[in-house]
Design a protein around this nucleic acid. Structure first.
Lengths: 189, 189, 189, 189
DNA sequence: AATGAATGAGCATTCATTCAT
DNA sequence: AATGAATGAATGCTCATTCAT
């Protein structure tokens, strides 16, 4: 039941947004009553926090595995990009809630999530720095901005990419990895 | 008055989101009454549509000027990236409302906006294709995905970039232009 | 303009009722603004009172003419029934407003109208009493109830009668006059 | 609670009309809150429909019993007139809401009620026709108009009759039955 | 004679939440 | 583990009315 409440909530939050989704909307989809919701969650915000936490914790765990497995900066980066893009397929809608609705968390909860987001970002930044130092990546890069740029490319794909469309998740990940590594220009000038 | 209502609305929509912002919130900021709001706007959604329309129409107009002025694909692309990033400074918060709140428009209005968004995107795609054809850009690029990638990099900056911080808008635009053109790898491999 | 406001108001009051009709609805139909309405009428209630007054005053005047012209009770009654039914054709919708919306007048205005209504009714009651006394009508009639009965027959026709339908106003008046005078039974029993 | 809401609503709708009665007015009378009203009724219109439906359904059921019990057209008609007038006593105010506020139903709901009203009317018309055919009633009557006339007499009494006044419901029903059957003229002319 | 702008109160409805059962 | 009933606050919106121009 709790799991079903979460699943249905995510769908509705994606579709209509957190504020525009009422508890009534959620329980109606499952044919239960509001009392039931409040047995499982302390509040609407608690549900949102639950969704945010399980999403970022999962991401951090998988990122950690990558960092421990891969040796080169390039390999690490490729795998992290793949992690983010593959996520669209597995978690689908979830990502969209994650990026959009953080402002509906209480300040404390939002801070917790932001800390974890920063951690995820910092680890990517470290990969970039590592690559710059060991010569894998170009010297004059601003690691922080590049990190945001990479996150922009991947996160934005949540807005338009349809995993059931012509292009596979694998192909998209390859394309974006190539884009990030080589840019688009035909030769250095 | 109408202009002030729009300005204050945008601030609040950015801060709390469209659904979480009430008409009362908006008019309280200006010390007027709700009746006054409804004299100027038919509905809350009509205000949101107004915001969306004026944003995208302005963007399209400036994009058109760029396309008519610049000769090379590279130059066009650089200017469009600068257009998007400079916008953060000039329009500030507006962009964030634009990307986030489209789902609160009526289906018809949303369709209108999406059509205009697609036009903006298609014009970028055309630049990429043009560059591929005339040898400015690499041959094996998938123009559509690259377009989304570029939009991801620039649009994502609305989420974190603070134009009053250490890094200037100009520097950010340069950095991202460099990133998009050359990628991050030290040499082709 | 004032006349047009009245005409359009009556139509709307009939269609949607007094409370459910807004000043905005009225002025929209004429393409003018609310300020214009308030130039001609002190308030919405004042308009309603105007409508009520002109309706009942006209009815009382015509009823008086009938009483002065006809000699026999029977003739007077027939003419008054015709007066009420003919009114549907001439005044159309107005009657429906008159009977329905009196409770939206201020207590003082409502009292004024009710006094005039009572006068109209009393004059009919007098006709009945006169007819009973001089043998034109049956002895055992309760004049007051019969008066209400007659008004019921005629006023109810405002609810269903369509003057543009198969049956003419003239025919309806004849039929109801016949009904009132003879009843429906084939012979006394 | 639901029953109490209905009862209090009817009183208020009679007194002030449907549009002029607010949900607040209703719940204030019972000392509960608006939320409570909306727990029991989907909307204000849903309450009005409930009132209309239960009124006409009850009337149709009792009319059916009369038609099955009485043999002669005359007896049927007398009983139906009594049914309508007795109703004033038992249902009191309800009738006034029923005839006045139908235009505040949604078009679909109004159609449903109108269909049932027409059924009630058609059954009276059938009684008249039956009486004309078997010689109980006069030959030259137009059944449809007579039906509307009878309904006018009875329904109009909702507007003025006070069951607690001098005249009893029984006496009024007798008087109107007599009026309908014999008319008011002393002898046929 | 009419407009444009504004007000303040009120409206139907929805909401997150509570709680006895 | 879940329901039915209720609350109180808020929401988007409409209203009759006013008034300077």
């Amino acid at each position: 039941m709790k799991a079903e409440l979460i699943k249905e909530s995510i769908n509705l939050f994606v579709e209509k947004g957190f504020s525009a989704t009422s508890i009534q909307d959620i329980v109606d989809k499952l044919g239960v009553t509001k009392g039931s919701f409040y047995y499982h969650f302390k509040s609407k915000e608690a549900l949102l926090m639950h969704i945010h936490l399980s999403y970022i914790d999962d991401l951090l765990k998988r990122q950690k595995t990558i960092l421990e497995t891969e040796k080169e900066a390039r390999g690490k980066l490729v795998k992290v990009v793949e992690l983010l893009i593959h996520d669209i397929e597995k978690q689908g809608a979830l990502g969209r809630v994650y990026y959009r609705e953080i402002r509906h968390l209480t300040p404390e909860n939002a801070a917790t999530i932001r800390k974890k987001r920063a951690e995820f970002r910092d680890r990517i930044e470290s990969i970039i720095k590592e690559g710059i130092e060991n010569g894998e990546f170009r010297k004059n890069l601003e690691a922080k901005m590049i990190t945001f740029g990479i996150l922009g490319i991947t996160n934005w794909s949540y807005q338009w990419f349809n995993p059931k469309g012509d292009l596979s998740v694998r192909e998209l990940a390859d394309m974006y990895t190539d884009f990030i590594l080589h840019g688009i220009q035909s030769k250095d000038s």
